[in-house]
Design a protein around this nucleic acid. Structure first.
Length: 289
DNA sequence: AACACCCCCTGTCGGC
DNA sequence: TGCCGACAGGGGGTGT
């Protein structure tokens, strides 16, 4: 599920319910998710007011009063669910998957936020807000592709000198942070670039951006922005925090469309699927060069 | 330094 | 129906 647009969607869904509220109680149903929870995790959360929610790459950051920030990553299958547990509340659903509800956070507003993660590739940690960027998981992250200044020149600089296939370089979170398998495939198709082309090709001998770099930077930003507007992509049964479904998956041009006709007008190609560093790449061999 | 490969864990789906 | 292998949105560690 969660690449940048999905995490952004989750963040926007959680913010109205969480920001300003105080954490009343935290229930940890196991000792950790991918990693053990930090020492005294529950105690350090309890009683704290939530000051802000932000996102860095695919990480959700929950700033708490008292100087610490909760860092959460959804891994492959993590999701948050919001329930209004106020007495008499109309919508009081029962968990469809209680087995994988690992963390339950009760707020003083009556809202309960539950983290569910079947595969347990997600994780949570607490770290000092001041110097948060030095957290081991955050310190090496590359550029935010939606930040101002992410343009052809910046992209070319990030890829210059790399002989890695373009797809692998775009997935490298140390260069660009937040892209995953789906949006890399989609952006490359939009930019008409082959996932196998050497990444360094997007910079010329002087390191200046080629025409392809311009097309790719634009495609990356457009596909991410459109996906956020659509509420992210809902694959399998993932939902947004409020239970709504994202619908960007209907806009996929290549991802999971092996064998389908290329959607590009006047292109007679058929979407192919190949493995690249152990993961599926979907692309049109006809128009992506 | 930069890659390719394997693993973490669980669920689901397609083929036989 | 049941079993088994392949595969899934991420990413860290290791070995070349």
């Amino acid at each position: 599920m969660p690449e940048l647009p999905e995490v952004e969607t989750v963040m926007r869904g959680l913010a109205p319910a969480m920001v300003g509220a105080r954490i009343e109680a935290v229930e940890l149903r196991r000792a950790g998710i991918r990693f053990p929870f930090p020492p005294r995790f529950g105690e350090r959360l309890t009683g704290k007011r939530i000051e802000a929610l932000t996102r860095r790459a695919k990480y959700l950051l929950v700033r708490l009063e008292g100087g610490e920030t909760l860092i959460a990553h959804l891994g492959m299958s993590g999701s948050f669910r919001i329930e209004d547990m106020t007495p008499g509340a109309f919508h009081r659903e029962r968990s469809k998957d209680p087995k994988h509800d690992h963390v339950v956070i009760r707020l003083d507003t009556g809202t309960v936020v539950t983290f569910n993660d079947p595969r347990r590739f997600g994780f949570m940690d607490l770290f000092a807000t001041e110097g948060l960027e030095t957290h081991p998981r955050l310190s090496a992250l590359g550029d935010e592709p939606l930040a101002p200044g992410f343009d052809a020149a910046r992209l070319a600089a990030l890829l210059a000198g790399s002989r890695a296939p373009l797809k692998a370089a775009l997935l490298d979170q140390k260069r660009i942070a937040g892209l995953g398998n789906i949006y890399v495939c989609e952006a490359l198709h939009r930019a008409k670039l082959s996932p196998f082309r050497p990444a360094g090709d997007l910079a010329d001998a002087r390191g200046s951006p080629t025409r392809a770099a311009g097309a790719l930077a634009k495609a990356i930003r457009a596909v991410l922005q459109e996906a956020i507007t659509a509420g992210g992509s809902t694959l399998r049964d993932h939902r947004q925090a409020d239970g709504a479904l994202g619908y960007f998956q209907h806009a996929f041009e290549v991802y999971d469309r092996e064998g389908a006709a290329c959607s590009r007008p006047a292109c007679a190609g058929t979407i192919a699927r190949d493995a690249q560093s152990g993961r599926s790449t979907f692309y049109c061999p006809e128009c992506q060069k």
